[in-house]
Design a protein around this nucleic acid. Structure first.
Length: 423
RNA sequence: GGAGAAAUGGCAGAGUGGUCGAAUGCACCGGUCUUGAAAACCGGCGAGGGUCACACCUCCGGGGGUUCGAAUCCCUCUUUCUCCGCCA
C-alpha cells in the first residue's frame, strides 16, 4: 500500500512510473487525495465535538461532587446534541476512511527506476546469463518421462490421493528432494540467515499484510470452517512475524530463511506448460526474507541475487536472470529479478527463483517501522527471494544431468543424497 | 470438547464509574559526580491522528452496549493459564 503523503508529494513521478505497468493512476490519485482531505477535515470536526463533550462531562462531575444536582442536570441536557453530532461524524469518518483504504488497496507498487516498461514476459530484460547448456543426445527425455523410467516421482499416485498437481516423490526422488532442501538451508544459514519453521496456514490479517489479500484470494486455498489460508509461499508467515513491530537500529539486519511446502490453486492453465513438475498445486521451496532500513535495501537485494547465483553455479545449471518489466512485475514489488534454468529436454526456460524488493509497500500495510537515530519512525523495506523453488530445480537436474546410464547427481549434493546417480 | 481464572506502557505490576493515558519497580535515554566504570542523585521515557509548533482527539486484548462520563459495569469474540477428557 502506498503512503498518502508520498502520493501527494510525488504525484507526477508516481503517475509516470506506474504507467510502466500500464496502470493509469492519475484519476485514482486525485480521488485518494480528495478522500484524504475529507478524512482529515472530518476528523478535526469530530475532535472538536468530543473535546466539548469531554469538557462538559468534567463539569458535571464537579457539580455532582459539590451537590449541585440541578445545575448538573441542566448541563446534561446540553450533551445530548453533542452526542448525536459526534455519532454522525464518526459514521462519516469511518465511511471516508474505509473508501480511502479500499482505493489504496487497488494501487500497485511504484516500479523502481530501472524497471523497463512493457506489457508481458516478452518485455523482460535479460541482465545476466551463466552456465553451459549440455549437449544431450536425441534420445534425451523430458523430466516426467525420466521420473517414470526411474520410478522416482509418481504423478498418478498423487492424482489418486489428492488430485492433479500433487505429485508423490519416491525413493531416490524423495531423497534427492530432501537433499536439495537441506543443502539450500545450509547455504542460507552460512550466509547469515536464521532458519525458521513457520505455520503453513495463515489468518486473514497476515494475508492482508503481505498483499495476498484482498486481490489474490483465488490463488490461495481457503479453509472455510476456520477461516485460514494455506500459504502460497513462506514469505507470508515469515514477513508477518514482524507485523506491527516498532524496531530499533540494533535489530538490524534481519534475515530469515525457511523451508516450507507452498500451496497454489493456479486455476486456468493447461498443456505442456503444466506437464510434470512445471506447475504444481503443492511444491517445496526454501525462502529468504530480509527486513532492511531503506538506505540498505538495494544493497541487500544485490546480495540476495548473488546468493541465488551461487546456488545455481554450485549445481552447475545453465541459467539467466531477468529484470521484470512493468507489465510482468508483481502487484507489491518495486523491482524483481527472475531466475530461470534452462530445461534442455523441454528446450525452454523454467522460473526457479524470484527475488524482489517491496520497499515500503508491505511495511505500510504491516505497520512495520523502526526508530531511526533521530528518534523518528520510518517504515522499513521488506525483501524476499526463493532460494530455491524445488520442483523446477529438480526438473532441471533430471533433464540436464541425464545420461544413457542414468541421472548423475551434482557434486555438491552427493554428501546429502548419499548416492552418485539414479539408475 | 467440559469447568474455572486472566488479558493494563519494552517487561513486571497497581488501579472496580469522574482531573487515569494510567501509581510503583525494572529496563532504556540524558545530566551531575568519577581518571574510567559502577553506585548514588536529578531529569526524561508508550502508540496513532492532528498542528509550523502548541492545543486538541483516540487507544488499558478485538468488537458492541449502558452512562453526561468506562481501564473500571454489561454482551460477544479472541488469546493465555490451571484442572478434567481426548490425542501424535
Amino acid at each position: 500500500m502506498l503512503q498518502v503523503n508520498l502520493i501527494r508529494e510525488h504525484k507526477e513521478a508516481y503517475v509516470k512510473a506506474l504507467a510502466k505497468r500500464n496502470f493509469e493512476a492519475k484519476s485514482i490519485f486525485e480521488k485518494v487525495l480528495f478522500l484524504d482531505e475529507e478524512r482529515r477535515n472530518t476528523q478535526t470536526q469530530l475532535d472538536k465535538t468530543l473535546a466539548e463533550s469531554n469538557r462538559l462531562s468534567k463539569e458535571i462531575g464537579k457539580l455532582f461532587k459539590n451537590g449541585e444536582q440541578q445545575k448538573a442536570n441542566l448541563v446534561k441536557e446540553k450533551t445530548a446534541n453533542l452526542k448525536q453530532e459526534s455519532k454522525t461524524l464518526t459514521d462519516k469518518l469511518n465511511t471516508v476512511a474505509e473508501d480511502l483504504q479500499d482505493l489504496l488497496y487497488t494501487i500497485p507498487n511504484v516500479p523502481h527506476e530501472t524497471v523497463p516498461a512493457g506489457v508481458s514476459e516478452d518485455d523482460n530484460e535479460e541482465v545476466f546469463a551463466e552456465g553451459e547448456v549440455p549437449k544431450l543426445n536425441e534420445k534425451a527425455l523430458p523430466h516426467w518421462e525420466l521420473a517414470k523410467k526411474y520410478d522416482i516421482i509418481d504423478f498418478e499416485l498423487g492424482n489418486k490421493v489428492t488430485g492433479a498437481g500433487f505429485p508423490v516423490y519416491k525413493g531416490k526422488g524423495a531423497r534427492l528432494q530432501r537433499a536439495l532442501i537441506t543443502y539450500f538451508l545450509d547455504k542460507a544459514t552460512k550466509a547469515g540467515y536464521t532458519e525458521f519453521q513457520v505455520p503453513l496456514m495463515i489468518n486473514e490479517a497476515s494475508g492482508f499484510g503481505t498483499g495476498q489479500l484482498p486481490d489474490k484470494e483465488g490463488q490461495m486455498y481457503h479453509m472455510e470452517t476456520d477461516d485460514l489460508y494455506m500459504i502460497p509461499t513462506a514469505e507470508v508467515p515469515i514477513t508477518n512475524m514482524f507485523r506491527d513491530n516498532l524496531m530499533t537500529e540494533k535489530d538490524f539486519p534481519i534475515s530469515c530463511t525457511a523451508y516450507t511446502p507452498c500451496f497454489r490453486r493456479e486455476a486456468g492453465s493447461y498443456g505442456a506448460h503444466v506437464r510434470g513438475l512445471n506447475r504444481l498445486h503443492q511444491f517445496d521451496k526454501v525462502e529468504l526474507v530480509r527486513i532492511e532500513k531503506s538506505e540498505n535495501s538495494y544493497e541487500a537485494l544485490d546480495k540476495m541475487v548473488e546468493h541465488v547465483k551461487e546456488l545455481l553455479r554450485d549445481l552447475k545449471l545453465p541459467y539467466r536472470i531477468l529484470r521484470l518489466c512493468g507489465g510482468d512485475l508483481g502487484f507489491t514489488s518495486a523491482l524483481t529479478y527472475d531466475f530461470e534454468v534452462f530445461s534442455t529436454a523441454q528446450n525452454r526456460w523454467l522460473e526457479i527463483s524470484s527475488v524482489s524488493n517491496f520497499e515500503t509497500f508491505q511495511a505500510n500495510r504491516l505497520k512495520l517501522r523502526y526508530k531511526n537515530k533521530e528518534g523518528k519512525k520510518e517504515l522499513v523495506h521488506t525483501l524476499n527471494g526463493s532460494a530455491l523453488a524445488l520442483p523446477r530445480v529438480l526438473a532441471g537436474i533430471l533433464e540436464n544431468y541425464q545420461t544413457e546410464n542414468g541421472i548423475e547427481i551434482p557434486e555438491v549434493l552427493r554428501p546429502y543424497t548419499g548416492f552418485d546417480s539414479i539408475s
